[in-house]
Computed example of a mutant assay.
Amino acid sequence: MIYDISFPLSPETMVYPGDPPFCREVLLDGAKGDDCTLSLLHLGSHLGTHIDFPRHFFPEGMDAAAFPLEQLCGTCNVFHLPDAAEITKDMLKQLDIQPGDRVLFRTDNEAFDGIHPLPHPVYLTAEAGEYLAERKIALLGIDYESPEGDGDFPIHKTLLGRNIPILENLKLKDVPAGQYCLYCLPLRIAEGDGCWVRPILER
């Protein structure tokens, strides 16, 4: 069983405030008599389902091209946390999170459709982010545009500062809690601070 946990990219895709939206400019159009169809895409590197690399917050941090694929692919745990207004350290301490784990959180953010913002999204507390860093996880995934509830980006700085990438805008609504194999392959963009991905989970 394979689960596609990405959202499609389109002009309707929700945009983080201040980021550029998706735009597809058709340069050649086979339907209008051209030899082929060729498009020019305009979009920010953190649009839709994407992964944040250390370069996002640290100028000398690893980029999309240099980041080891072994850390992005492999055994993964999906934790379902229904009815949680926020993900706290105490909540995480009740879960079996081990060093090297790839951790994805399915929350009430599963109502997100990739287009319309949620009025009260579920975030991680700063202490929860620090706990995950202390547990030395390999990757964090969340079912919304950011794990942050604080404008100072403590979770990004804590995790990315320790080379722990963040997978954002995941579509986990139909994914049961449990263990999977995660395949998450970014484009090999030199100096890439982030990259769009189409991650899949295999049961």
Results as ranks from 00 to 15, higher is better:
D4T: 07
I5V: 05
P8T: 07
S10H: 13
S10L: 08
E12W: 15
T13I: 12
Y16E: 08
Y16D: 03
Y16P: 04
P17E: 06
P17T: 11
G18E: 09
F22N: 02
C23N: 14
R24A: 14
V26G: 13
V26A: 07
L27Q: 10
D29V: 04
D29P: 02
A31C: 09
G33P: 03
H42Q: 13
H42C: 12
S45M: 10
H46S: 08
H46Q: 11
T49C: 04
H50R: 11
I51D: 03
F53M: 07
F53K: 08
H56L: 02
M62Q: 14
M62F: 08
E70T: 00
G74Q: 01
G74N: 04
C76I: 10
N77W: 05
A84V: 06
I87N: 01
D96F: 08
D96Q: 01
D96K: 05
I97V: 15
D108K: 09
F112T: 09
D113M: 05
D113A: 15
I115E: 11
I115F: 08
H116N: 10
P117G: 04
P117A: 14
P121L: 12
V122A: 09
G129N: 07
G129Q: 13
E130M: 13
K136I: 00
K136N: 00
I137Y: 01
L140C: 03
G141T: 03
G141D: 08
Y144Q: 05
E145T: 11
E145V: 14
S146A: 14
P147H: 01
D150W: 11
D150V: 03
D150C: 03
I155R: 06
L160T: 02
I164G: 00
I164N: 01
I166A: 00
L167P: 00
L167N: 01
N169S: 15
L170Y: 07
L172H: 05
V175P: 02
P176H: 13
A177H: 12
A177N: 07
Y180H: 08
L182D: 00
C184R: 09
C184L: 14
L187M: 06
A190S: 12
G194E: 00
W196S: 01
V197N: 10
V197D: 12
L201K: 00
E202F: 13
E202L: 13
R203N: 09
